[in-house]
Each structure stands twice: as structure tokens, then as C-alpha cells.
Design a protein around this nucleic acid. Structure first.
Length: 309
RNA sequence: CGCGGGGUAGAGCAGUUGGUAGCUCGUCGGGCUCAUAACCCGGAGGCCUCAGGUUCAAGUCCUGACCCCGCAA
């Protein structure tokens, strides 16, 4: 099929790869504009752009899609059969949604109608979902409200967001290619989403990673996993930011105040929270890399009875 | 030219006003012990990121490069 691909971050890349592998013709790859971000001021290409260049595909980076006549004309001229959207980062106007013969399809990282929105993968972990997955839907106006075409499930287990995202991204890529074939053959029956059952995964902000030690060990552990690698769950120790990267809830109860350091050993740091105890196994302080508590303790001191805040 | 921290033994850190490097852990050998992630004794292991410069002398000062990381976006 003649395809226009729209996507931006790492999550989108495997999907683009699979589309190319499957032999589809990708006329345009649309991704967010390069921005002078990161340390220094380096301008960085989006992961999708990198992959597109690698495959000699034409890249478009409209600042805004909505009301962009020039962009719309290019799409019309190419006349794609379908537009595939994976974490593109902009809402598409109706003119674009209805332009291709088969419309626009979106690869979304949750089992819709659950977790519509910007951070389905992280939220699935944070909310303690047992399973999540990929839903491919026919895009409609509205945020992730379109009719569902195909789905694939997986378990959350103890995966962190990095692992889960990678897995879902690959599952999604595979499913998309299969779905494209079904669409082409007219063998799909779209299924409406039950709006009553829908939930939202709101956009994550840095500050959301601040740990609240009044929460239960399990909740904090899920936050740590869900926010790996971004923005990271953190707390303060002696006015220094400490990011936690791996923790484990223990089967202990305590009546110590929240955030108190109860025990320090090579196994980790035991901290009281919400009446329970959380074992911190891997952490990171500013300017340093992630290290296990064992490594951290070789050159740093950490006093019992002090508090993490 | 966004702000800032850092690159020193396998690991994590120290290193004072510049004088050829220390600590903790690990590792190797020995000892004590019923036993030990315990304790004691001893040993190995460092082109101090790289390249220039200042100096009698540089991990320590200056310049440049490469790499890692926190903040901010």
C-alpha cells in the first residue's frame, strides 16, 4: 500500500521498520520538527527521522499540521492509501483524517478504551494493571476515541517502562503489518469503544516523579518502574536529589514515621513508607550514574534514622 | 554558544596552600574459628580520560579535545 507514516519517539521506530520490511511504499515520513534541546544546545533529530534517513525516505516536519495548506497539498498529491500514526505528537485535523482511502490508523499502547491519552504505558505500570497491550484503531476526532480494529495483549509483570515500551512497540509493529493486510482485504470489523469504561493516562510531568513516602511500598515501587527512564522517581536525602531506579516492597510492617531509613546494608536501604517497608536496591545522585546500593556505599555514607523526603 | 557536576586500582569515593597517590569493598595468600558476607596478618593491582602549556616539580594551575551525568527544555 501507499503509506504516509507519522511518528516521533523510539516507540514509533519499530513500526516504521516493519512497514518498510513488509514492502509497503512509504511516500512520506512525518515527524516533529528538530529542536535545539538537550544539554549544550545540540539539535537532535527525532528517532523516527533517523530511521527515515537511514532508509532514504522523504521526511516532513511541519511545525503545525492543523491549517497547514502546503502540508495538506503534499499529502493530497501523494494520495496515500492509508496514514499510520504512532506517537506523532500532534492532533490531526479532520481534513487529514479523511484524506486517505482507508483513513488514518493509530497504534496505541494500551487496551482501549482503558488508558487513552499520552502515557498509557507508564500509567499501566503505575496503576498496577496486570495486563496491557496494543490497540490499533481507526482514528477519529477526539483523543484516542476511534473504533478499534485489532488488539494484542501482554502482561505487565515486573517490567519497567523501558522494557514494557520496547515490548509493546515490537508487538505493535507486528500487529500493524497484519492489520494493514486485513484492511486491504476488507476483513476487519471495527468495534466501537465503550466510552463508559474509558480512562485517561494524563501527560507526565517531571514533578510527578516526586516520591510520597506516605504511600505504600507497592505504590512507590510501581512509580519507580513506571517512570524509568523518564522522568525517574526521586526523593531528597540531605538536600540532594536521589533518584530511585530499583526497589522492592518488603513483607514487613512498621510504625516508624514515613521516609525514615531503618536499615542500610549491601542488600539495600530499608525505608519506612505507609506503614510498610521499601527496600531500595539501585539509586542515582546528581552527576553520577545509576549504581547499586552496594556500590554506592563503598564511597558514600548513608546514616540510619535519617529521612528521605 | 542555556546552567552545573564529573572522568584517580575491578567497584564506589578521598586527595589539603602543586612535591612521583590514599580509603572502603572486592581480589590473591596466610591465620583464627564447628562455622561465617565475621575477625587478624600480608600481597597484587593506578600512562591519576587524552593532547599541549606553565614549573626544578602537576592528579593538583592554564588551554584544547573526547566521554559520562544532574537541571532546564
Amino acid at each position: 500500500m501507499k503509506i504516509v507514516f507519522m511518528g516521533t519517539p523510539d516507540f514509533s521506530v519499530p513500526v516504521l521498520e516493519k512497514i518498510i520490511e513488509a514492502g509497503h511504499q512509504v511516500g512520506y515520513v512525518v515527524t516533529q520538527p528538530d529542536k535545539a534541546k538537550n544539554r549544550g544546545k545540540k539539535i537532535q533529530h527525532t528517532p523516527v527521522k533517523e530511521k527515515a534517513i537511514e532508509n532514504n525516505l522523504i521526511v516532513l516536519q511541519p511545525e503545525k499540521v492543523r491549517g497547514n495548506v502546503e502540508f495538506l497539498d503534499k499529502l493530497k498529491e501523494y494520495n496515500p492509501d492509508i496514514i499510520v500514526v504512532v506517537a506523532y505528537g500532534q492532533l490531526l485535523p479532520i481534513e487529514v483524517l479523511e484524506l486517505p482511502k482507508f483513513g488514518c490508523v493509530n497504534v496505541h499502547g494500551s487496551l482501549l478504551p482503558k488508558l487513552r491519552g499520552a502515557s498509557p504505558i507508564q500509567q499501566a505500570i503505575i496503576q498496577g494493571e496486570e495486563k496491557t497491550g496494543i490497540t490499533i484503531m481507526q482514528m477519529a476526532q477526539g483523543l484516542d476515541t476511534g473504533d478499534m480494529l485489532t488488539k494484542v495483549e501482554t502482561t505487565v509483570d515486573h517490567k519497567n517502562a523501558t522494557e514494557l515500551q520496547k515490548e509493546l512497540s515490537e508487538l505493535g509493529a507486528k500487529l500493524l503489518v497484519e492489520t494493514l493486510a486485513l484492511i486491504e482485504d476488507g476483513k476487519i470489523t471495527p468495534e466501537k469503544q465503550d466510552d463508559e469504561k474509558s480512562t485517561y493516562a494524563k501527560l507526565i510531568f517531571k514533578q510527578d516523579g516526586k516520591i510520597d513516602f506516605s504511600k505504600s511500598p507497592m505504590e512507590i515501587e510501581r512509580l519507580v518502574r513506571g517512570f524509568d527512564p523518564w522522568p525517574g522517581a526521586f526523593c531528597m536525602y540531605n538536600d540532594v536529589q536521589m533518584k530511585l531506579w530499583r526497589t522492592k516492597p518488603l513483607e514487613k510492617k512498621t510504625n516508624q514515621p514515613d521516609g525514615k531509613i531503618l536499615e542500610v546494608s549491601n542488600q539495600g536501604i530499608e525505608v519506612s513508607c505507609g506503614g510498610g517497608v521499601l527496600l531500595i536496591e539501585e539509586l542515582q545522585v546528581p552527576g553520577k550514574k545509576r549504581v547499586t546500593v552496594e556500590d554506592y556505599l563503598r564511597g558514600n555514607k548513608l546514616e540510619i534514622n535519617q529521612f528521605l523526603k
